[in-house]
Design a protein around this nucleic acid. Structure first.
Lengths: 241, 241
DNA sequence: CGACACCTTGAAGAGGTTCAAGAAATGTGG
DNA sequence: CCACATTTCTTGAACCTCTTCAAGGTGTCG
């Protein structure tokens, strides 16, 4: 067996509730343990999968932090998302049997490899798993609607505020602080995701600091006034009604 | 029975190849005929479904043209897509059991109603259907990646050119002209989708006309130089390598 | 035919980008 | 462990694209 892989069990995993359906009986859990064939470690900077690569599996993030991005022949580049523990990667590969984006580890990471053939087979038997897979894909579609709203209708400050709020909310759901976070990505990667240049990201951070809403020390962010950030995002109210 | 609904059969439908899996035997086809319970007509301007509405079914467009859009409490609005015959709508509703966007008919339309419970049940029995559903959802995810690239990295001309090329390509796949199209949406709706103001859309159309790339008579568009449009989208090449 | 929605165009202005320089952090090799 | 190279981040100034505001034109439908 590949030394970088080990056999593990979902039934024992403290992230189970994030990436697996709930309310399974022990027999169903046992079956699902067989889906997660192995774990795989990815070094910072390495790709979990790459554009054009044959699609075989979905991946559940065990530890670490990823970005997904697409690159076109003419050199355009777009970060399409940032993923953290418990989230599922690889859905882009299903339609063409090949991946259409790169998944890059932004810190050393470990994922559970779930061969898609097995998932499909098992989801025919376990209704909760079938429903779960559908929900995961639907959730990704809805998430991307939100990104389209952000990119299509928000100004720089609104985008960055929405970005920070989204990150802390997801981190908090994983037991981290509501007010402190460590960015795993560069200003350029944030900018790519938000449709802004890195200078604009930097300037907008500086403005937030001036206004006393956050503290910024490189990639260490402390949110001082979360309500002010929310107001920036939601303060699109028409003058009156 | 509701007078606006009639019983029909996929096995007889000339759009089958667009919205259903291929290579089914006659028994499987018969089962799938049972999934598509009824058809439903939607008048121009009416909603197929609305934000917050209970999710029950997916819809295959039989005739007509739709937009999907999300609206936030603070008045932001974003068109997330335009859908035409053979395309599937409603995937946004799966994750929360409620729809998270509005689907609005831009012309009188007819859809096939496919109760999602039936789809899930049948896709446990018919592997090709299961795979098909997964591919449809994955395709939507990948499509949205493309929109993110457009919104995040393209300038106004590039966005509008990409938009026109996408439309004619999809229309051509349905047997329509490669060079002529009738826009079903307003400049404002195009602008919302592309993250631009309606005036910018209008001006950009005018520029394309000046440059001899298209003819524009209100919503009637004739593409005179499709290669020039492609060049606008792809001409992001770095000076040299 | 008149009302209404939609589209076009101009001029001024704002927001974000580009270019440039320097500072701070990080990694590397001796 | 320190010196140096590299990457990343910040900030300023000029510029450009797109937006905003405004007015008028065009098409459509009852």
């Amino acid at each position: 067996m590949n030394p970088h892989t080990i056999k593990v069990a979902c039934s024992n995993c403290n992230l189970r509730e994030l990436c697996m359906p709930m309310g399974l009986n022990s027999e169903e859990l046992k079956k699902i343990d067989e889906v997660v064939a192995i774990r795989r470690k990815i070094k910072r900077g390495a790709n979990l999968y790459s554009n054009g690569e044959k699609f075989t599996s979905l991946y559940a993030i065990r530890t670490g932090f990823f970005k997904t991005c697409i690159t076109t022949e003419d050199g355009r580049n777009q970060v399409t998302g940032f993923q953290m523990a418990g989230e599922i990667m690889g859905l882009d590969g299903i339609v063409q049997d090949h991946h259409s984006c790169d998944a890059v580890a932004l810190e050393d990471a470990e994922v559970c490899v779930m061969p898609f053939d097995h998932i499909e087979e098992l989801s025919r038997e376990v209704n909760a798993l079938q429903r779960h897979i559908h929900k995961i894909m639907s959730r990704e579609i809805v998430r991307e609607h939100g990104v389209m709203l952000l990119l299509g209708s928000m100004r720089a400050e609104e985008r960055l505020a929405a970005f920070l709020l989204n990150l802390v909310q997801r981190l908090h759901a994983r037991g981290f602080s509501q007010s402190e976070l460590l960015l795993r990505m560069t200003r350029e990667e944030i900018g790519s995701y938000l449709g802004l240049k890195l200078e604009t990201v930097s300037r907008t951070f500086s403005k937030f600091v001036e206004d006393g809403m956050v503290e910024v020390k490189q990639r260490h962010i402390r949110i001082l006034d979360i309500d002010a950030l929310k107001l920036i995002v939601n303060n699109n109210q028409p003058p009156c009604a």
